[in-house]
């Protein structure tokens, strides 16, 4: 029971890291980016290639996955995404679905269609017993890292100058530009950072979520759920939403494997009907 809860928390934390970049693009920039999973997949494959082909230690792969995905995100943002900020939602959906298809086929072409496996360092594999509760070491590691990242994100958004610029740009783009904030640069940086986080999540999740070319399609709905349920005005909203989703998904798969997915999708639809702005949205918007 507690093990399931623990696994669910680890899973939820991963989902948060994967999805929080999307929170920004979707919620803050109002861009429906269904291709977010492609950045996560990039991070995952970077890790696989570095570890399995070049034998680089797992710990070095994580920052590398972040950097590569962030660079990819920055390039795509500068060249393609930014042209579509003002486009209709249909255009954005079509564009990002196109990107997803391209990434799926490209991953299949370069890496092959099989499930990719990574060998975790020995100190992270296996289980440990804490007070009679079996806890996967790697899951503990995931939780610690993700929690630290979530905390850091919250601090960056709330305390730093960049955070306040971003919030200003989001709340009122024109007023922020009038104050001399370089909104386009802020958005580009944020997009790249979000993509990088997705890449990091993909790298860490290769072990838990699995990694194959269909990754962006398989997890697209999960990312969207996190954003839609969590709302977009805070960091804590998506964080809680991701935790809930993770626990519900793991518990659902464990206790009622036959109807597990229904629970999630059903809850999502009910949620969207009752609270279209998100579960933890500020009132009055």
């Amino acid at each position: 029971m507690l093990t399931i809860l623990f696994d669910g928390i680890a899973y939820g934390m991963l989902l948060f890291i994967l999805a929080c970049g999307l929170t920004i693009t979707l919620g803050l920039m109002n861009f429906i980016n269904l291709a977010h999973g492609a950045f996560a997949m990039t991070g995952g494959y970077v890790t696989v290639v570095m570890m399995n082909r070049y034998g680089i230690a797992f710990y070095w792969c994580l920052p590398a996955a972040f950097l590569v995905s962030a660079a990819l995100g920055a390039i795509l943002e500068r060249t393609l995404y930014r042209q579509l900020y003002q486009a209709s939602h249909l255009d954005q959906v079509l564009f990002s679905v196109g990107l997803v298809f391209m990434s799926v086929a490209a991953a299949d072409y370069i890496m092959g269609g099989q499930q990719q496996l990574i060998q975790l360092p020995p100190e992270l594999s296996g289980r440990a017993e804490f007070f009679g509760v079996g806890i996967g070491r790697y899951r503990l590691f995931t939780i610690v890292i993700c929690a630290a990242l979530a905390l850091a994100l919250q601090l960056i958004l709330a305390k730093t100058r960049f955070g306040s610029r971003l919030r200003a740009a989001v709340d009122d783009r024109r007023a922020a530009m009038g104050l001399g904030i370089n909104v386009s640069a802020v958005f580009a940086l944020t997009f790249a950072f979000g993509s990088g986080l997705a890449g990091l999540g993909g790298a860490m999740g290769a072990e838990i979520l699995g990694l194959d070319p269909n990754f962006p399609l398989k997890f697209m709905i999960y990312f969207l759920i996190v954003v839609a349920v969590g709302g977009t005005s805070t960091v804590s909203g998506p964080f809680l939403a991701a935790l809930l989703l993770g626990i519900a998904d793991v518990a659902g798969k464990y206790y009622v494997p036959a109807i597990g997915p229904f629970v999630i999708y059903g809850l999502m639809i009910i949620m969207l009907i009752l609270r279209p702005a998100g579960l933890f949205a500020r009132g009055g918007r």
């Binding site: 042209q83 079509l94 564009f95 196109g98 990107l99 298809f101 799926v104 086929a105 490209a106």
Partner: peptide, 16 residues
């Protein structure tokens, strides 16, 4: 095996 890539590329180009 990879027709999906070109379909995706077509979508992206169409939108752009």
């Amino acid at each position: 095996q990879y027709w999906m890539f070109w379909i995706g590329l077509l979508l992206v180009i169409l939108v752009l």
